[in-house]
């Protein structure tokens, strides 16, 4: 292959004519960055009905490789395979439940974004409710205690008189 420097020397030292010129042009063409030719997009879905059902299903399924994406969103190889599998099963007239069960059998409940209610998922389902009840309870207790404290702070007769005297003094001051 020509290096840039060699090519430069070649251009400077030789006449640009005949076969040599063609050879030069040929090598210059080789140095062009490779061109990406546009191509018509391959249709994603041969069957829009199947595709719609597949998308609805995969929206609620977790991609195990990129765990924060659904299989519908993920471009991972794993998700590609699962989508292909689901398309095939839809074409084979499997019900949605059968398809989801197929995946749960292989990958566990973890593929589901909607975990089923089971002893092991109780905390997941009811944890927030329990936390809410605890929060609400402590708020009520706090508010009750505060009310008692407010009621406790009532002024004695002497204090009231002093306060009144101070207020009056202030009024007089302002009038002057």
């Amino acid at each position: 292959m020509f290096k840039n420097h060699d090519l430069y020397c070649f251009v400077v030292s030789r006449q640009f004519n005949g076969i040599k010129g063609l050879v030069l042009i040929f090598f210059l063409l080789l140095m062009l960055p490779s061109v990406g030719w546009p191509k018509e997009a391959i249709p994603v879905a041969e069957d829009p009905v199947v595709e719609k059902r597949m998308l609805a299903l995969t929206m609620d399924l977790r991609c195990l490789v990129c765990q924060n994406e659904s299989i519908a969103d993920s471009r991972a190889e794993f998700s590609n395979d699962i989508r292909r599998e689901i398309r095939e099963q839809i074409k084979a007239n499997k019900t949605d439940q059968e398809i989801v069960q197929f995946l749960v059998d292989r990958y566990g409940d973890f593929v589901l974004y909607n975990p089923p209610m089971k002893p092991t998922t109780m905390l997941l389902w009811f944890g927030p409710v329990i936390l809410f009840v605890i929060g609400l309870g402590s708020l009520i207790i706090y508010l009750r205690r505060r009310r008692v404290q407010i009621e406790d702070v009532s002024l004695s007769q002497v204090q009231l008189e002093r306060a009144e005297a101070l207020l009056n003094e202030n009024k007089k001051g302002k009038n002057v």
Binding site: L64, Q67, V104, D105, R106, Y107, G108, D109
Partner: peptide, 9 residues
């Protein structure tokens, strides 16, 4: 390890 998903198999 969040990648360690217990296998149902």
């Amino acid at each position: 390890n969040p990648r360690q998903v217990p296998s149902p198999l």
